[in-house]
Design a binder for these strands. Structure first.
Ligand SMILES: [Mn+2]
Ligand SMILES: [Mn+2]
Ligand SMILES: [Zn+2]
Ligand SMILES: [Zn+2]
Lengths: 153, 153
DNA sequence: AAATCAGTTGCAAATGGTTTGCAATTAAAA
DNA sequence: TTTTAATTGCAAACCATTTGCAACTGATTT
């Protein structure tokens, strides 16, 4: 139940080899599409939609459906984390080994720019909420919204 | 920009007359479907999906599409607040007059039971996040997830 | 290097929530 | 009662995501 909200994005970019290693270990094949997808995720510090990944891919490299399937698989293996900015489109971000990827974002409602956030919902308060309602395994989903400096004027 | 996260659900149930009054004031018609929908929302302390509202309605009372349109309208008038539990289905809760409806929930991941939560993300921290990134009008979307007492064993 | 086989892919079709076009209907104002 | 703008139902469109399936391919075994 680790949830350290701690500077995930300061982690150095993961080696592609380390990523494919994780796949191999789970007896998943390293295919062209997958390598390409991981390569794109590796170079993006913010969550990407499947369509955005698709757009970055050299045209014809792979089908959109393949990306959907890859993200599902990577999520199940804990290699990417799914985020929901409330616009009905899933976004994915690469997660470091041993990290659960829990963190939050500040999103500009004008330009949809994204800032990675280090702060997390205070643990004591969350514990209090859990205890008060006798819930176990409590976690949270949290995103911030506002207007970024560029969009303010 | 009020965001008092304060005991919305302790508010006494709104009178139907007050609700229809708000509609009238905006030159919206009080129709059978709308009255029925408001009546259902009025009696439910937790967010409802359009389908759930539809199911509560006496069969044939109105079309599902009418509910979608009603909720859109009520949201625009600030009479209901839209919530997103991350399952791709919008949920709506009635909001008191003058209230912006901002609050949070604790959701059981097993039975999807919902608990209304009074706590909010600490204002000082949110202000710090806003200032640190020079964002204005910052707010947040926050929901808690866990396993409720009934589902624990 | 060839055979093997589970995992993977593309394409088309299905899904599920939500929105839209439009003609018929109706609440509320005149 | 007449008038008129708002509302409704129904069918179809939309959009993100999933699924079925036959063809294909990476990795492992002969
Ligand atoms: Mn992030
Ligand atoms: Mn609520
Ligand atoms: Zn957190
Ligand atoms: Zn809050």
């Amino acid at each position: 139940m680790k949830k350290t909200c701690a500077h995930h994005h300061h982690e150095k970019k993961q080696e592609l080899a380390s990523l494919t290693g994780r796949l191999r270990r789970e007896s998943r094949k390293i295919t062209g599409p997958r390598a390409a997808i991981l390569e794109i995720l590796r170079h993006h510090p913010h969550p990407l939609t499947n369509k955005e990944i698709f757009a970055e891919l050299p045209k014809g490299e792979c089908d959109l459906v393949t990306i959907y399937r890859a993200m599902q698989m990577l999520e199940k293996l804990g290699m990417v984390k799914r985020f929901d900015f409330g616009d009905g489109t899933a976004r994915f971000e690469l997660v470091g080994e041993g990290d659960d990827g829990h963190h939050h974002h500040l999103i500009c409602t004008r330009c949809t720019g994204v800032v990675e956030i280090d702060e997390c919902f205070p643990e004591e308060i969350e514990r209090r909420i859990a205890r008060a309602n006798r819930f176990t395994g409590v976690t949270h989903r949290l995103e911030f919204f506002g207007v970024c400096p560029d969009c303010q004027k």
